[in-house]
Design a protein around this nucleic acid. Structure first.
Length: 559
RNA sequence: GCGCCUGUAGCUCAAUUGGAUAGAGUGUUGGCCUCCGGAGCCAAAGGUUUCGGGUUCGACUCCCGACAGGCGCACCA
């Protein structure tokens, strides 16, 4: 990455300045190169002179000047400027910027890829909503975040697997089956009222009707217990089919669906891990339950593995599941995307990792805040149990996949998000996703028009980008060249929202270029320039498609 | 009561994890289509970054204390 090359130059410059006696010997701080907010100041800036003032016992401005004076020449640097109180600013050369067009072409759809992961394996587990009802809008944020993170990390050099954890064990599943049983009885006119803890949503009634249509009255003959057990399986399969369909509709494809219940199969993962933990003396019997001694690993409390009832506790699933991920399946790294109401659980995960003898930093829990839905100015409370839900499918029907994906990615993870349904529906030309897609469609249109007017494919492919020296062209090239940094930041912070903002920026810069730089010219003497600009447009279009692709948003050829 | 998160333009949100004059979209006001898509562009207005201290060359960012909102504090999931 170009930023690292500049950092190397600065380091070399300081060494040279020291040998030349222009700078004293001192402990070098980590050299960080960043982008100034104000692009007029340069493409990159270093604050190393200010940071070195104390250890070098020298005025920061003087240090900055020494660095600038001793900086080795490099073809990608055009100018070095020093600004008080000690900034060293760098301006990229036009030749290097124009050369990025060739980089994009050579990268063939992978421009912006970086190598943070080094090909190591990383699992991203997301959504993982209880299979007791259709996906609602809270899950949609999880879905967007997880899917975009997976894409970004893949671009950053990780080998990615996407996984959905199916919570098909435990009391939620039991409650779901009981509800379905009662709705089924009701479908035959029997009196079987729901209780307050049951799932009140209308979809349960529909589910029961489906079962009745397909299976007739066969469950009426069985004992309640047998019927509930059978309905549990049938209902689970149906709900999972819904979830799978909704996910596919959102353009999310999971590589693997993992059953929580499978952890507890005879000879399964849970037996394996608890045997291991017992052997290592990490469990303890207390109050009739069996506890994992996480207090020995930094926690202020122990956790229940086996309840006094003999049933495994919830923490047991976390332990077994993550044992499976790291030890049995051997992922180098795992990312779990959880809603913020699991924050305490998240805090306990490092202790779990240590108890399993694993390095805690191999696991990241990405927390995101809730989505607050508004309709007609009123907050719509979401609760599967009360039945007051707004499903992902409903919103997608109204707003479209692209808008849902884009809007949900324009917020940083840990901030409550207000999603106004009325606004989202109305936002046809006001929605930022259309702004971004419009830019892409416009580029496609320019390329089409060029073909119609006789500009050859060769002209576009071999345009002389040394002709690109107009400020509008250079601004566009600068923005394009930022993509690797955008991907790096998103990957390091596990926060993909920067992609959306970058896409909007790029669209803005492109529109300015379009305004100031005539691409398809009918003036014969400008034919060569047209070819160069067409090549730039083609490259920009590819970068656009790349960013939108990482977000899972369509890049349309026309709208 | 304790813990975590959030508080930035009228509204929805950014801000390179301590850098230079805090930025976009939307809304408001005014302007721009006689060769490439006006779903676009340009300009104006809009701020004591909730409040009060502190740390240092420098704070939206870090520390302490208030205030407001969200979430969480089980052998639940």
């Amino acid at each position: 990455m170009i930023r690292n090359q500049i950092a190397d130059l600065v380091a070399q410059s300081i060494k040279d300045a020291q040998s030349a006696g222009a700078l004293p010997a001192f402990d070098l701080p980590a050299i960080e190169i960043s982008r100034p907010k104000d692009t007029a100041k340069g493409d990159f800036t270093s604050t190393v002179a200010m940071q070195s003032a104390k250890p070098a016992r020298m005025a920061p401005l003087a240090i900055a000047q020494a660095i600038a004076a001793h900086l080795p020449a490099a073809d990608f640097i055009d100018a070095i400027e020093v600004a008080p109180p000690g900034f060293v600013n760098f301006r990229l050369s036009a030749a290097w910027l124009a050369g990025q067009v060739a980089e994009i072409e050579a990268a063939a759809g992978h421009y912006g890829d970086i190598d943070l992961g080094g090909g190591k394996s990383c699992q991203v587990e997301f959504i993982s909503a209880n299979p007791t009802g259709p996906l609602h809008m809270g899950s949609a944020r999880n879905a967007m975040l997880g899917d975009a993170l997976a894409s970004v990390l893949a671009a950053a050099g990780w080998h990615i697997q996407r996984e959905y954890y199916v919570n098909d064990a435990g009391t939620q599943m039991r409650t779901f089956a009981e509800t379905l049983y009662r709705r089924y009885l009701q479908a035959f006119g029997q009196d079987a009222p729901l209780e307050s803890h049951h799932y009140q949503g209308a979809y349960m009634t529909e589910l029961a009707q489906e079962v009745k249509a397909e299976q007739s009255d066969r469950f009426l003959e069985m004992s309640a217990e047998d019927a509930i057990s059978a309905l549990s399986e049938i209902g689970l399969a149906k709900v999972l089919a819904w979830i799978r369909a909704s996910a596919e509709r959102l353009r999310i494809h999971f590589d693997h669906w993992y059953s929580e219940r499978s952890l507890y199969a005879s000879g399964g993962v849970f037996e394996h891990v608890i045997t291991d933990l017992r052997a290592r003396g990490l469990t303890e019997a207390k109050d009739g339950a069996e506890w994992l001694r996480t207090s020995a690993f930094g926690s202020d409390r122990d956790e229940v593995l086996v309840r006094s009832s003999g049933q495994p506790g919830y923490y047991a699933s976390d332990v077994a599941y993550h044992y499976d991920k790291f030890v049995l399946r051997g992922f180098d790294r795992v990312i779990d995307v959880w809603a913020v109401d699991h924050q305490n659980q998240a805090r306990r995960m490092p202790h779990l990792m240590k108890a399993l003898g694993l390095e805690p930093t191999r696991l990241d829990i990405v927390l995101y805040d809730l989505v607050r839905l508004y309709r007609d100015g009123q907050e719509v409370k979401l609760s599967k149990r009360s039945g007051d839900i707004i499903t992902v499918d409903e919103v997608v029907d109204e707003v479209g996949v692209d808008a849902v994906r884009f809007l949900l990615l324009t917020r940083s993870n840990q901030a409550v998000m207000d999603f106004d349904l009325n606004l989202a529906v109305q936002q046809n030309d006001e929605n930022p996703v259309y702004y971004v897609q419009y830019a892409h469609a416009r580029m496609a249109s320019i390329l089409r028009t060029a073909t119609e007017r006789g500009f050859s494919q060769t002209c576009v492919e071999q345009g002389n980008f040394d002709l690109l020296r107009h400020p509008g062209e250079l601004a566009l090239l600068r923005k394009i060249a930022e993509l690797p940094e955008v991907i790096e930041k998103a990957a390091l912070q596990l926060a993909p929202h920067g992609l959306a903002f970058y896409a909007m920026d790029l669209a803005g810069v492109f529109h300015a270029f379009y305004r100031d730089c005539r691409v398809i010219s009918s003036i014969p003497t400008e034919a060569e320039l047209s070819c160069a600009r067409l090549r730039l447009v083609a490259g920009t279009k590819a970068v656009f498609a790349r960013v939108l692709g990482l977000m899972g948003v369509n890049a349309p050829e026309s709208m």
